[in-house]
């Protein structure tokens, strides 16, 4: 069963990467980044799963899942949110200068 979670995580990561490679809209690029991040986080959480175990809270009933992979996504979510916030701030700046968010029309630094 855990294979499904891992498979989903990998699929989400690859979908994010595909979005990033193919889309020409800056917003979609940032969405692709977020999707990639979601894939990695899901992968981390899945790696801590133990069948029929409870959450890592005391007092504990039965076993507990691995608490360590729960802390990484908490840290990584915050980091990813900062990256996305910064990217959106840059998009606002770029849009104010060019009036577009299409990569093909933003050619300031090409060539």
């Amino acid at each position: 069963m855990i294979h499904v979670s891992y498979g989903c995580a990998i699929a989400i990561f690859c979908i994010g990467l595909y979005t990033l490679i193919t889309k020409r809209n800056l917003f979609k690029t940032v969405i692709g980044l977020s999707i990639m991040e979601g894939g990695v986080l899901l992968f981390m959480v899945a790696s801590g799963f133990i069948p029929e175990a409870g959450p890592p809270l005391l007092p504990m009933v039965g076993g507990s899942v691995n608490p360590l992979p729960h802390t990484f996504p908490l840290t990584a979510i915050v980091i990813g949110a900062s990256d996305v916030a910064l990217a959106l701030a840059y998009i606002i700046k770029i849009h104010r200068h060019y009036g577009t968010v299409d990569v093909d029309k933003i050619r300031g630094l090409r060539g």
């Binding site: 890592p56 005391l58 007092p59 360590l68 802390t71 840290t75």
Partner: peptide, 16 residues
């Protein structure tokens, strides 16, 4: 009593 909080703020507080 929250193990995740204990890891975040004590064992691995430097990450936080």
């Amino acid at each position: 009593s929250n193990i995740v909080a204990a890891i975040l703020f004590d064992y691995r507080g430097f990450d936080t």
